[in-house]
């Protein structure tokens, strides 16, 4: 199979190039690898919710990124109004553990409920009409994006991490951000584990898995599929909300993050296959590492091609669609 061999050769060349550079500057390689892993952890939390909704309900929720961003703004506002945490970057009133956790929990729950409301009002009556549903969620995302710019402005805001937490930890001789490495990666692992248990070990999870494979049959067996759909949307939106607060603390809360993270979620699902949690994990890792490495190692002596790094993530998608059109763990039936 020619494309397969070609891709394999390309893959070997890429790995060899990264390895060569890694040997040249081990410290940079390690930092860049950690960047990729921590970014992947954030992608995973966003995309896990997206893939659940996509896989079970066939709804391409184009407002998933807007829910992500809105959660960040809610938590940012709560931190300021409830606790008087300064919006200045790392100056002014610092945040405490409570004034970080409470906004996180509130924002996550609000976004979860908003997701269910959106599903009940806009998506319940038109099930099975993918195009109409995609267009409705696009409309919601555009309206939300404009309202957020009007209300919160175009300047990036940041949610403050608790001042009691260390700024950085030392791993293999490299100082690395504590929040990124411990909190975000830890959250992704915990969420991944919990979702795995829910999906593999509970009745609800069993129904979801059955629904991903064959909705009509699940419905015919007497399961109230509407409740399952609402539950899946709740979980999906909760994850978007949680990721929004994590992302707002790790990176920033700013206009444009909505569409950026929506696109990332789509790429993760294309790589991993829709509805698959393991696929989302591997897809996130692939996307995180590729975007992280390509920002640094797409540099060949005097020829600096790092400005084309965004293309590489799409090449990843094209390669996946060429070899496995359903994604790594996507199943046709």
């Amino acid at each position: 199979m020619a494309p397969g061999i070609l891709l394999a050769l390309l893959g070997v060349a890429v790995v060899a190039w990264i390895a060569y550079n890694g040997v040249q500057n081990g410290k940079l390689f390690w930092v860049v690898t950690l960047n990729g892993i921590t970014l992947a952890a954030l992608f995973f939390v966003v995309a896990a919710g997206f893939t659940l909704i996509f896989g079970l309900m066939r709804v391409v929720n184009m407002a998933h990124g807007s829910l992500f961003l809105l959660a960040g703004y809610i938590a940012f506002t709560l931190q300021g109004t409830l606790y008087g945490v300064s919006s200045n970057l790392l100056s002014g009133t610092p945040a405490t553990v409570v004034s970080w956790i409470v906004p996180l929990v509130v924002a996550t729950i609000v976004i979860g409920l908003a997701g269910v409301l959106m599903q009940q009002v806009f998506l319940r009556w038109n099930q099975g009409q993918d195009l109409r549903q995609a267009l409705i969620t696009i409309a919601i995302s555009v309206i939300l994006a404009d309202q957020m710019v009007a209300h919160f402005g175009g300047i990036a805001e940041s949610i403050q991490q608790p001042a009691a937490w260390p700024d950085s930890v030392t791993v293999l001789g490299v100082h690395y951000g504590f929040f990124r490495l411990v909190v975000v990666v830890g959250a992704a692992i915990v969420i991944g584990g919990l979702l795995f248990l829910v999906i593999k070990r509970t009745r609800f999870g069993m129904i979801i898995r059955a629904g991903v494979d064959d909705r009509s049959m699940v419905s015919a067996l007497g399961v109230n599929i509407q409740v399952v759909f609402a539950g899946a949307f709740l979980i999906g939106a909760l994850l978007a909300g949680l990721a929004g607060v994590l992302g707002g603390t790790m990176l920033a809360v700013q206009p444009g993050n909505d569409s950026a993270f929506l696109l990332d979620s789509l790429i993760v699902v294309i790589i991993g296959g829709m509805g698959s949690l393991g696929g989302a994990a591997i897809g996130s890792l692939a996307l995180g590492l590729v975007s992280s490495y390509s920002n640094v190692y797409l540099n060949f002596g005097t020829t600096d091609l790092t400005n084309y790094s965004i293309l590489l993530t799409f090449i990843l998608v094209v390669a996946m669609l060429a070899v496995r059109p359903l994604g790594l763990f996507g199943r046709p039936a």
């Binding site: 996509f54 066939r58 391409v60 184009m62 993918d130 195009l131 995609a134 267009l135 969620t137 696009i138 995302s141 555009v142 494979d213 064959d214 909705r215 009509s216 049959m217 569409s259 929506l262 696109l263 789509l266 294309i270 829709m274 059109p325 359903l326 996507g330 046709p332 039936a333």
Partner: peptide
């Protein structure tokens, strides 16, 4: 009754169209 490759492709196409619609105003 069962999702097929074609359905996944159609969903992807829908998503791609959607992204285009979001970016072009």
């Amino acid at each position: 009754l069962r999702p097929q490759r074609n359905e996944f492709r159609r969903l992807l196409a829908t998503a791609a169209l959607g992204l285009l619609a979001v970016t072009a105003c």
